[in-house]
Amino acid sequence: MLAIENLRVVYHDVISVLNGISLDVNEGEILIIIGANGAGKTTLLRSVAGMIDFYDGDIIEGDIKMEGSSIKGLDAADIMKRYGLTYVMEDRPVFWYLTIEENLGAASFSRWDKHVKTDMEEVYEYFAVLRSLRNKRAGYASGGEQQMLAIGMALMTKPKILLLDEPSLGLAPLITEELFSIIKKLNESGITIVLVEQNANAALNIGIRGYVIETGRIVLDGKAVDLLKNEDVREFYLGSGEKERKSYKDAKRYKRRKRWL
């Protein structure tokens, strides 16, 4: 459905963030992308959603294809309208000074028609809390409610593929669990989901496939269940794995002395 081919992205013409990433997203799956801070996950999503220009970044090599046609260099609004690709930015991208209902209305700007009201009802079905807060300013809602609103706003754009950037950022474990179960439900209703997460454990549990990104490169990919069992992923991202301390001595490649003196 979505294919990224050897993508290289540079910020301000000097900072190379993505150094040749290739990945595909199949229709109807939940794809998990994990990686440390600064690995380039957010940059990847920004380039796909057509917002990299806004952050003074440039795609210097590679291509992004949606259903076979290149979407590189298109406007964010165009990509959304033509291909149904919606990007939910990190850190709860809601409009603080608008009420929750107005937020949902603003998100449906690109496709305003008679169904907006019924779609809003549908969002309220998914996120029951939002209904009782509909006339409250979004800035006064709690973090979990804001994140639910952000995903609700993304639903108002009628997406076929949804890019979620760290939806669990700053949320309590219980709320995260609820959020992820909703994401799973959305996926079952037919929306393809690309989920970028720091919370690797929770994400890999709902995911189908996963990629691990480090310094702008893909270092590992596979089925989510396999990644959960992978020794390195367990150690670096899940905080479990080998318990005993490792010493640099063991990592030395040559045990034999090479010269006398």
């Binding site: 917002m51 964010a76 919606t86 809601v94 603003a106 700007f109 690109s110 496709r111 993304a154 754009t157």
Partner: peptide
């Protein structure tokens, strides 16, 4: 940027 991300 938020507005752009939601198709405005």
């Amino acid at each position: 940027s938020k507005a752009m991300a939601f198709g405005i």
